[in-house]
Every structure is written in structure tokens, then in C-alpha cells.
Amino acid sequence: MLLQQLINGLTLGAVYTLIALSFSLVMGILGVLNLAIAELFMLGGYCGLTLIIMGHSVWLAVPAAMAVSGVLAVVVERVAYRPLRDAPMIMPLLSTLAFSIIFQNVAVNVWGSDPLQLPDALADARLSLGTASIGIMQLAVIVVTVLLVVALGVIVQSTKLGRGLRAVAENREVARILGAPASRLTTAAFALSGSLAGAAGVLIGFHYAAITPYVGVDTGLKAIAVMVVGGSTRIWGVLIAGPLIGVAEVLSVVYGGSAIRDMVVYGLMILVLLLRPQGVLGGSSMPEGERV
């Protein structure tokens, strides 16, 4: 029973991890909270689930969702972020929010407000693991998450793109002077972040065996909490915070009444902001943050 809950918690945590990484890429590199991510995630989920229902495999659905959300993220960057880069941080916050309003409206009009269900045959297929069992879809969530995290790790740590991103994160102006194409890298950060959100959307569809146009707000806000707990300026703390919060959430539903779970998650987020703003893994300095 406990093992079963741990598995459920891990798959939910895997999805949180991906969305938090998506927030964290833009936040850590550009210092901007891209609120459109919540709905890029939802739209990715719809694209992926639509393909699965049409009979395509996970290996087509996830990349397709990533492509759609990645491209839309670039649109968000061009229209809502780039012209407001030097404005107070409240402006990109609200302009990306405006995009999320548009995306949600589009999803409601295209797919309707009823949940889009995963076919029962897929949702119910399970692999037995002794005392516990894992759904095929849950297994897919974990495998895809691991693959994506490894891929992101390789990109950020050992490619030219990754070095550029880290340089811009360190100091945009200095990076530009040293020849990093800062604005192209900004677009790349949004694209990477968007495609991670798109993949996470397909995976949340697997986790709940359904997706609704409203999944973005709730899960997105919680992913912001995961990002903060993991450390908003460093990317890797999220790998611990995501599964931790996923498992904590599932266990609190089973043992502690589901209503306290949000209090726990956001309480933890506020505590981390106040006590260790650099996240549980630490980091060198407290980010000053811009003035409003």
C-alpha cells in the first residue's frame, strides 16, 4: 500500500519536476516568471492526448506536444517578453499571463470544457511488481521524465547552447560583450522551457488519465512552489524538490486529509523564500531581485 502510494507520488512528482524545470529555465536565466507556461503545459497535454487517442504511440505524442508548446513559447517570447525586457518585472508577468488567458480560451473552444479521457485500455494496463503494481502509463511518465532530464542536463552542461545560457544567466551584459548572442539565447531558453512544459502536459494526462482546460492553473502554481523550494536560480534543486513534493502530496491525501496538502506545499515555499531563498541545495548569494 505504502509502496503503491510512493509510486503514485513519484509520477506526480515527475510531472512537477518537469514544469518546475520549465519555469526555472526562464526564471534562472532571465529572472522572469513566465506565467504562460501553465497553459503551454495544458495545450501540450491536449496535443499529446489527442494523438494518443488517434492511436499513435507515446514516442510520437510527446515530441509532437513538445514541438507545439516550444513554438508557442517562442511566440510568447517575441510578443510578450522581448518588447518588455527592460520594463519593471510586473509587465512581463502580466503580458505572459495575458497569453495564458488566450491559450486557455482557445483550448476551451477547440476541445470543450469536459475532460479529454485517455482510452480505458491504456489507462488500466498495469505491470505487476510483487506487492505493488505500476500502470503502463505511470511507467511511461517516469521513463520520459528521466530521458528529458538527462537530455536537458547534457544540453545545459556540455553544449555550446548550454554554455551560452549559463553565461547569460550569470550576467547578461558581460555575456553579450564577450560575444554571446543574448537575444537568440533568450529565444532558445523560452523554446526549451516551452517544450519541457509541453511534455509535462502529456505526462499529467497520463497520470490523471484525462486532461481539462483548467489543469494548468492549479498544477502550474504548484510547480512554481516546487521551483522555489528547489532553488529558483539554480536548475537542479528541482530534481529533489519535485519528487519530494509529489510524494508528500500523495501521502498527505492518504494519511492526512487532502485539504492540508496545499497548505503544506505553499507553506514550504514561503519558508524557503524567507529562510533559504537560494533553495534547499544552497547557492552562493541571495538574489536581490529587481524592484517592481
Binding site: G31, L93, D262, I270
Partner: peptide, 18 residues
């Protein structure tokens, strides 16, 4: 400050709601 304060107040809002 700034975005960090915004995120903390967001968390406070969600805590109060729940």
C-alpha cells in the same frame, strides 16, 4: 523583493484559500 515577494504573496494567497 520584486518577483520573490510576488511569489511569496502568491503562496500566501493559495494557503489562505485552502
Amino acid at each position: 523583493r520584486g518577483i520573490y515577494l510576488a511569489m511569496a504573496t502568491l503562496g500566501f494567497g493559495e494557503m489562505t484559500r485552502s
